[in-house]
């Protein structure tokens, strides 16, 4: 049995004390794996991601990340613990008043204060080159570069602190097929570039999820309906999974 990076045990979450968005969810994400979380809209994928990131506290249940119980941490400890995470947001979430290079330097200036400015620029430039961004774009503002370049910058920023776990929140939603393929390849390359890094991707893109992920978790009604290697999803007898996969693959 491989080591577990993220452990969710009977996690429940309600916002209005009536309806449970997450309803007794159990999930173990192995260390070093690339795991995709898929499911219908409104099944709690993003809510689960926010729980793992410590942005939401569960109503009940246990969440362990890298062996640490998030429920036992206060807000300051959680803030500190998040240095272990890198996140690529759906809309990249770049700081629009900073240049591309400044965006990538920002996490370093916050957490690696022992570094000189030159060293920070060197690390940031290396991360940007790693994700395939040409140096001629480094001094541009996010509004002056394309959506694909913004994704690359967002990924470089997520990688800046060499995180233990990398999260991708709907990384290809709203992108054209070429850009989608570019982002998918970027995720795979990034995952294989650093040995031991755990990657978690929340996605609507089933084709990409099954192609690049080591494990896939399908959520339904706030619970894990099926978890396993991609091939398990094509062999299952579960009618709901079969329908979802068939429709999703047809669409993509």
């Amino acid at each position: 049995m491989s080591e577990i990076a993220i452990h969710l045990e009977d996690v429940r979450k309600t916002f209005d004390e009536k309806e449970y968005v997450v309803n007794g969810l159990n999930l173990d994400i192995p260390k070093g794996s690339l795991t995709a979380i898929i499911g219908f809209s409104g099944t709690g994928k993003s809510v689960i991601l926010k729980h793992i990131l410590g942005l939401y506290r569960p109503t009940s249940g246990r969440i362990e990340v890298l062996g640490e119980d998030l429920n036992k941490m206060d807000n300051d400890q959680l803030t500190d613990f998040r240095k272990n995470f890198g996140v690529l947001f759906q809309g990249s979430a770049l700081f629009d008043d900073m240049t591309v290079l400044e965006n990538v330097c920002f996490p370093l200036s916050e957490h690696r204060r022992e570094l000189s400015e030159g060293q920070m620029v060197e690390i940031a430039s290396r991360k940007l080159q790693q994700v395939g961004l040409d140096s001629k774009h480094f001094d541009k503002l996010p509004s002056q570069i394309s959506g694909g370049m913004q994704k690359r910058t967002g990924l470089a920023r997520a990688l800046a602190l060499d995180p233990e776990i990398l999260f991708y929140d709907e990384p290809t939603t709203g992108l054209d097929p070429i850009l989608t393929e570019m982002v998918d390849n970027l995720i795979v390359e990034t995952h294989h570039h650093r040995t031991g890094i755990t990657s978690v991707m929340v996605s609507h893109d089933l084709e990409a999820a099954f192609r690049i992920a080591d494990f896939v978790a399908m959520l339904n009604a706030g619970q894990v309906l099926l978890f396993g290697k991609p091939e398990v999803f094509f062999e299952t007898d579960n009618e709901l999974v079969r329908r979802f996969v068939a429709k999703g693959m047809k669409k993509t």
Partner: peptide, 14 residues
């Protein structure tokens, strides 16, 4: 709404 505050949060910035 552009998730920049979430980005700061997950970067470990208070």
């Amino acid at each position: 709404v552009n998730e920049q505050i979430d980005a700061l949060d997950v970067m470990g910035v208070n």
